[in-house]
Every structure is written in C-alpha cells, then in structure tokens.
Design a protein around this nucleic acid. Structure first.
Lengths: 266, 266
DNA sequence: CCTCGATGTTTTATTGTGTGAAACATCGTT
DNA sequence: AACGATGTTTCACACAATAAAACATCGAGG
C-alpha cells in the first residue's frame, strides 16, 4: 500500500456522509444523526444548516427533523435513472471486460424493447455483437431474456402476445417453451444462451438490482461460441454475477461497502 | 436585515456550488470550473476528488472531465420527483396561504387522474375543498383543467374520450367547449374557474414548470365564491403566478436566484 | 407547578485544515 | 521543438472548522 495521498477535504466528506445517512433513514434529528455518525451535535447542526441553505436537506419546521431536500431531486433528475446506472456500471464493466476479455453489455428494458446502455469491446472479436443505443427484442439475447424473466407479469404477457421473430434457428418462438425458459432463469438467477439472437454467439447475463430492490438492468458477457467451453462458462458466470452484485451494491441506498471499491487502473 | 448569523461551512458550501455548476453544465474540467466559480484550481481539484470518492461526481478518465455521479441519482431516486416538488413547494405554499388567506393546493397529474400532493388550509373556510392524497378528475377543477391543458395531445384525447362526469351544473361536459377552454388556458397561462367541481368554490390555478421545462404541476388558490370579487381575482392571480414561478425557479437546474429566497417566518 | 432530562441552538478557544500561490507534469498544438 | 493550456502536487499560513460546554426550549412525570 502506497498510502495514496489523501486529498479528501474532511468537512465536505462529512457533509456527504450526512446526506447518505439521511437518505438511509430520513426524518432524523440533530442528536440522532450526531450519534450515529460519531460527530458532535454542533457540527451536525452546522452541516445541516449549510446543506439546508442550498436545499440539499429540508427541515420539518415543527418537528425539527431533517430529510433530503428538493435540490437532490432536481440534480438527480438531471442525471436520470439511466445516468446513475451508467455511471455506477462504468468501472465495473471495464473490470469485467479485463477479466473475461469478452464483450460486455449493459442492457435495460424500455417497454417491450430492450436498449443497450453501454458496451465494452472484448479483445477477441473484431465485431461487436451489440452496439450502444441499439434497440433489441425482449425474447432473444442473454440480457433481454433475463430482463423479461424478471419483468412484471403483465409485461411478459404483452411481450408474448406479440409475434416472436426468429433471428436464428435457435431463437425460442414457442410461447410455452419461452415461459419455461423464463421460469428457469428466475430459478437460476442468471441466464446463459447460445446462438439465439446472433448465430455463433454466446451470452452470460446476470441481473442488476436497483435502489428499490427491483431488477432494472442486466450485465452480460458475450462472445463467440468457439471460445466458450465448460471452464469459461463457469468463470464468466461468476464474473458476471460478481459484477452485477457490485453494481447493485453501488446503486443501493446504503451505497458501496468499504470493500466494494473498484481498484483503479495502475 | 438582522445579519442572520452565518453558520455556513464554507468548504461544504463550495462543494455544493460545485455540484450545482456541474449539473448546470456537465463535462467540465478543473480549470473551467475554477474559473466560473472563482475558486483556485487546487481547491476545485480537491473538492472534486472528495466528491468523486463518494460517487457524487464521476470523472471521464480519458478526458479528465467531470459530471454528476451516480450517487446523486441514487439519492435523488430516494426522494422522487414528487419529493423534490413537494419540498420545493412547501415554503412557497405557506407564503401563498399567508398572502391570500385562502386554501392552497398543489396538484399533479397521474395518467388520466389528478392527485393532490399537498394543501394549506386558508383562514376562512371551515371545510377544505381538497385533501392531500385525493384523486380527482382531469376535466374539472382549476388545477386539473390547467394540467390537462398543458398535457400531451394524446392525453387530452384520451381524457376526452372518457365519459365526462358533471360534478355540478357548471362542469363543462361538452367536448368542444372543453377544448376551447383548454385553448384559452394555454393562451392565458393560468386558469380561473368557478363552481365547476365544488359548487360555491372558486379556484385560481397557475402552472409549475419542472427542470426539463415541461409543466408538471399546478398550484392554486381556492375558496368560497362569496369572497371572490374583482380585486381579489387580480391579487390571487398574481400571487398564484408568482408562487408558481418561484417553485419553478427552485426546480430549475439553475436553481433559485439570489432573489428567490423565501423569507422564513419571524 | 416545578424539576428533570433530552433536544436543539449558540458561544468560544484552539487546532487543525482548508486554502491560495506557485512549482511541476502532461498533454495536444502550432 | 517550443509553446500554451490543462491537470496534479507541494507547502506554509491564516482562518475557519471543530469540540466542549453553556444556554434555551420543550415535554414528561412526580
């Protein structure tokens, strides 16, 4: 450990910790916050005062309890749900790509389509299977099927009531079989497919959980089936699941644990 | 001015200013931020560093440019759109109530219904016309009609294709007349109705604009028609429009101007 | 009704820390 | 190759953040 230069400015860091604490449990008073954060009351008081002036926290005037303020919402809106996901996923995707040397895709659902939010190109393949910003079907592709599996039943019904295009001979177009596949995905907690969207491609997908506990995205490792053997199947799966867990952790209200820090590139 | 004791912590305040600046214009570098905020580079650098460690800003590693980080999105999600609106509106609603002595309602649209987010009870009326959390129709009531007027055309069509209940003899149920009324609301930029939802009640409603520039809510002054004369009509209208502007300003990405501060209760 | 305890608010002194200036590094550009 | 602009790091000092403790305010309970 090279004792990596602490440029943190303590006052700011404390203020941010305070915000996190309020997000975690709103409607706390000065004393309660001070206790749980190990700060003095006067410090907490002044931090809150500063944050309040800018609308980052708001005080219930009657009960002298604080909560996150509207400005957080305004700034958050600017970022958008996708933004939070994207930013949280970025370094994790980099790491996953480095680990697997394969393509990495971050996919979300929008209505009855899927949407590739971001990709990382693997080392091997010349051609990327997915491209950022690309729309895709819900019933084919590792990440897409996974998202469908965890979608609201009404969404599943709607998706299955549409015509199911066969992108390859391996695409599942039989509705009963598709439901079975979804069932198995939910049972496993991941999804591995071969050739169903792009012929010659495999995809190992894991679910990402948002702050509210629902599954909001999938991250997947994808590449050419030629390179896909039993050993890689295991390692890719573990890597994808770990990456998904890491991103989910970052998106959780409690934030990334002390452990979860992604090591920056040397 | 009583020179109100500055409890602000400068470092924290600067950090927040930095966040605002990044929200305002993302993808800025250290120098640009330093210049526009009148801080030194080193300070900005360290503030950014601190914010980055907690995920409140994120850096594009290649281009060394910063933007809001995922953590803002996570916390913002916690608050929700309604939360931001509610917290931003609270003090303004208090002030509006004090000015007008009438009921004040904050209404948003949800699908083809409206929803009362918050109310302030006026001095006069014993009975509150609206109650927080209450659903209402889209085609009657000062705030509701206003929201309908500014809604997407598809929403208007959908709303008009439903049966239009007559809550009082004054409720507009004729679709052509309703469309005319909506037209007039858009032309005026406000809406004043009498008796159309509750008999004996007037409502003066003004539109609130969200961070993205669309109209997301209405704030209205409402009371008994008996107390509604030409003079009050003018003063209530101006008060409502001012209040709406104030809230909109707070919700804008640029934030409340120096002027916009709501004076706290003595 | 008064006292007690708990909470939020204000003051104050001291130290530590946030700060600016300036040196340094690292780019891309002409 | 030299320049200019940008990001990074160092460093010394002043001032501002901090902890402790006093004060205010409120409610509960005897």
């Amino acid at each position: 450990m090279t004792e990596p230069k602490d440029y943190k400015i303590a006052a700011v860091d404390r203020a941010l910790a305070l915000l996190e604490a309020l997000a975690d449990r709103p409607d706390q008073g000065v004393t309660s916050l001070a206790k749980s954060l190990g700060m003095t009351k006067s410090l907490v008081f002044r931090l809150l005062h500063t944050l309040e002036e800018r609308g980052f926290v708001s005080r219930d005037p009657e009960r002298a309890e604080y909560a996150l303020g509207y400005r957080i919402g305004v700034l958050g809106e600017r970022l958008g749900k996708d933004g939070a996901l994207l930013y949280a996923a970025r370094p994790v995707m980099d790491a996953l790509r480095d680990q697997t040397s394969e393509n990495v895709n971050l996919v979300v659902r929008e209505g009855l389509k899927t949407y590739v939010l971001a990709t990382r190109a693997g080392r091997h393949s010349i051609r990327l299977f997915a491209q950022a910003g690309r729309n895709g079907p819900l019933h084919a592709g590792g990440g897409s099927l996974l998202l469908l599996a965890y979608a609201d039943p009404s969404v599943i019904d709607a998706a299955l009531s549409q015509p199911l295009e066969a992108f390859t001979p391996y695409t599942i177009t039989d509705r009963a079989k598709l439901r079975q596949a979804l069932e198995r995905i939910r049972a496993n907690g991941y999804n591995i497919v071969l050739n169903d969207l792009d012929e010659g491609a495999f995809s190992v997908a894991a679910p990402i959980t948002g702050a509210d506990g629902t599954i909001i995205a999938s991250i997947s490792v994808a590449g050419a089936v030629a390179r896909f053997d039993e050993e890689r199947r295991e390692s890719h799966l573990k890597a994808a699941l770990d990456a998904a867990a890491e991103i989910s952790e970052r998106l959780s209200i409690h934030g990334p644990g002390e452990n979860g820090r992604v090591k920056s590139r040397a």
